[in-house]
Design a protein around this nucleic acid. Structure first.
Lengths: 134, 134
DNA sequence: CGGCATCCAGCGCGATACTG
DNA sequence: CAGTATCGCGCTGGATGCCG
């Protein structure tokens, strides 16, 4: 019955997620994607699939624990897919899913904002600290 | 000497910040703004200045410690300004600076992404967990 | 190569109590 | 009302060692 399906679909779309609510799932999702490693991994994968070791090299200073852990969470959330090529040695590739690609431009913009607005932020910090210790 | 100033300005602009570098200041800035409280405070202030207690009520589940702490950091980074009105009782208003307003649309988009893509993420999680425990 | 398991130091963060 | 101060626990996240 298409009426049923259509009304079900409308009901689903009407379900409202609001990150301002403490126990909303969207709040936890927002928390998970609001992470510098997520930003960096997403933007690193912008150019296409990459091997684990390539990502590790691209993102300086990330421990392999945090990298693996973040990759797992992102995979579980459907942001990227993991492909193991059985060879010796093993080869593992990560690539963005369409879901991940939909998030990419947003996170890339945030990362770019941080890089381009550093001078203004540093000036603001200097002014703030100066006001406190005159 | 305007030549000096212009060349200095060009030199500043040429300074490259890269969040992929471990010790780049932009990495730490990215870390600071990649925070759910920053997203929520920013979007809460989108409609105009708000009092501390209003922000506290708008963002459910935030402790006053985290709220105050995040507001301080954002103020120091120049994202918002704090205004104290000496009255009884005291009134404190927070409003976005132009720098904060430049970041707002990006964070609002990330928050909106989390809210609108929850169904897809939940499906991805279900599929991931199903594959692990068949 | 690309992990996983373990240990443990540090501090993030909440809870609570007190103030101008 | 809008904080500051203090305590204490949990969890994050780095370091290390082992494995298919």
């Amino acid at each position: 019955m298409t009426t049923r399906t259509a009304s079900r679909r409308r009901a689903d779309e009407r379900r409202e997620y609001d990150a301002f609510m403490a126990d909303c799932p969207a709040r936890k999702l927002l928390d998970r994607i609001s992470d510098k490693w997520v930003s960096l991994i997403l933007t690193a994968l912008a150019g296409g699939p990459m091997r684990y070791s390539d990502i590790n090299r691209r993102i300086a200073g990330v421990s392999q624990k945090m990298l693996t852990q973040t990759l797992r969470t992102m995979e579980r959330d459907g942001l990227l897919s993991r492909t193991v090529t059985a060879s010796v040695p093993v080869r593992v590739d990560y690539r963005l899913t369409s879901l991940g690609e939909s998030l990419l431009p947003l996170m890339a913009a945030v990362k770019a904002w941080a890089e381009t607005h550093m001078p203004q932020v540093e000036r603001a910090q200097a002014a703030y600290d100066e006001a406190l210790a005159p």
